[in-house]
Design a protein around this nucleic acid. Sequence first.
DNA 1: TAGAATGAAAT
DNA 2: ATTTCATTCTA
Length: 488
Amino acid sequence: MPTSSSSLPLPPSRKPSRSVPAGRNSRRHTDPPQPPRPRNSFIIFRCEFQREYSEKVKASNRSPTPEKMLSKRAGVIWKNMSLEDQKKYRDAAKEEAIEHLVKYPDYKFRPRQRSRPKRRSTGAVNRRESIKSLMREHSSGSQIESGSECERPTSVLSSSPEPTTDDYPHTLSHRRSMSLPHLGPYRFTRTHFIEPVSCASSPGTGPHWSSSRSSSASTREPSPHLPAITLRSHDFEIDPGLDAVPFVSVAARSSTSSLGEMVALPECVSSEGMHSIGFSSAQTSPMAPVHESNLSGYFPAPPATSVPLQHRRHRSNTAPSSYLSPLAVVSSSLGNWNGEMTATAAATSRPGFMSITDTLADLTPTATSLPVTSHSTGDYSYFGGPFVSEPSASSFLTLDTEIDFDRTPRRADFAFGIQDLPMSQPGIDSTSYRPGVNGAGGFASSFGPSYELDSYKMGLDAHSITPAMCDLSFQGDHFDDLFYMGHD
DNA sequence: TAGAATGAAAT
DNA sequence: ATTTCATTCTA
């Protein structure tokens, strides 16, 4: 096939500003820099789409940046695109692949292996065993024993002409989680309790792609005969599928957020930069929410005034963030950790708590088993009852907060002074929760002292982990999960 | 520097 | 079955 048919007018600025494409996963910075992978059809489309989009935005006076990123919308459009149109991009991708093959005959895709060892999904791990392993992991502190996640040097085949550079330092000293403080502010990583060891980023495997024409990949010419991307007006809307999105920005990605602060209801939050409540209709111009920069979360609309949440797309989650109760934290933690992603939407059972991440929401909510059901405020009755929703119902809720949901809450994560309180106090339990009157900081007085602990306990209960002892004495650094022994 | 999208390739 | 990484841009 003749490659060009270059009759179609190319957008003049063919070359994006990208000279070093380098995504964060890019292998560009590896020792012997490797050529990037050939783009797949969607990626090609996305590039075009983005270009088109920004042009349109520039031309018209649409909102500058309705979304942080266009990937999602590109995905929607891609899905709605006719197959023939898609095929054009697939062809383009194929072309690029061939080009790539010609250009880098020795290229081989070598994804780094940085994830933790996969869980036996069918393993049906005994809960007790799971707990023990949890204990092991925790008790080992920041040490991680298994070196299995090191990049295997084996990928350098013997066909490599040069002596392999793969004398890997098998040191585990360099961990990927350098940036992840153990005690500090939450970070959300979708790994698990313990950050995986990805050994010493040594990319090694030093083959040898003929480096003579190294940068040519960055001057990649998009295929000229791609179908024009037509952007319709709704492509500029905040969320075409969402008629009205009331959103509440709850505070505080402040790095100092403790769980205690996080449980604060938005209504309670009053410190500076803490919250804003607003309603935005996607039909109207996407006017900024009250504090755009602070917008961090979407509340589901109150049932009366909003669309049912049925039509949420699976992958759709623009919605920034939310804070979870400790209950949710522990639940999701245990869920993940168990390998059986039993998300609990328990957080939604409390007024003001937002839901679980979209990922978790994809899973079967188990909130019905949780004792926290009676906190309807009327305002957000959505949150009032047990959150039995279809999987997609809350999928627009996401959390990109700094919570590491895969980590068991530690002492430092809880509000000041909470660790000194007994586990249960008469009259003060999790159900005595009321929206605080003291604002965000007033955790103890607002929510009852044992709230978080109870919450934590309930999280465990929800997973049929019953406390052998309810003595949550804080020994060491984190909650003594060891006191909770599973039974089954 | 993470993360949003889909898909190809690898594990 | 699950992960990485192609791209780009923002916060």
